[in-house]
Amino acid sequence: MSEILSVKNLSKRFDDLTVLDNINLSVNEGEVVVIVGPSGCGKSTFLRCLNGLEDIQDGEIILDGENISHDKKTLQKNREKIGMVFQSYDLFPHKTILDNVTLAPIKVKKRNKKEVEQEALALLERVGLLSKKDNYPRQLSGGQKQRVAIVRALIMQPKVLLLDEITAALDPEMVHEVLDVVLSLAKEGRTMLIVTHEMQFARAVADKIIFIDGGKIVEEGTPSEFFDNPKTDRLKKFLQTFSYNK
């Protein structure tokens, strides 16, 4: 397996507040990395640094052999290669589901509209939303919107897909339909970085789990190492917050 993404000594500060402190991470092609940690520990900020929504103060981000950390000019080009799905879906409310999905390939990649639409319809069918293609986002449930958001990112054929708590705003019965899609993406070998609080899902989907606390990677390992043999007290404490038999 070849390395697709490498983060070296990444640090991120908001004024005086150090949010990410010397983060190192290597992700191989096809690998699924789950990131967990207490609220406010910097998980979202980390993903946002990776696709340049936040600038970084120190370190390097290397995507597919290319250093993308500080080059403002290639930032937009590189964002095409990194998909991101947010907690709040952020579909474009004035566009139909089909137009939401086809906007970026047509505008950014200047691809043929007919061809893109065929591809979009196939992807929508795959997530069970073909019948919604002409609807507007407001006419969809949260879980449906989130599946569209995943399709909208996928159609750009990103090398890495970043998912930031994509089920956190959903009603429990909708969480599953979204996670099923993510699980199927993992099975077909997509490279993903996933921030989630769904621990069972993390165990099922992850090749590697990292635990961030206080802006540092405190522990990292395979799901079984991580859940069954946590090494640090901080991770043990964190995992306890998800259990009810105290």
């Binding site: 937009q76 964002r79 095409e80 998909g83 991101m84 474009f92 906007l103 950014v108 909208r152 750009m156």
Partner: peptide
């Protein structure tokens, strides 16, 4: 702002 961010994340200028 999240509308701009999701558009940026898709690679739009």
């Amino acid at each position: 702002v999240s509308q701009s961010e999701s558009a940026l994340a898709l690679g739009l200028s």
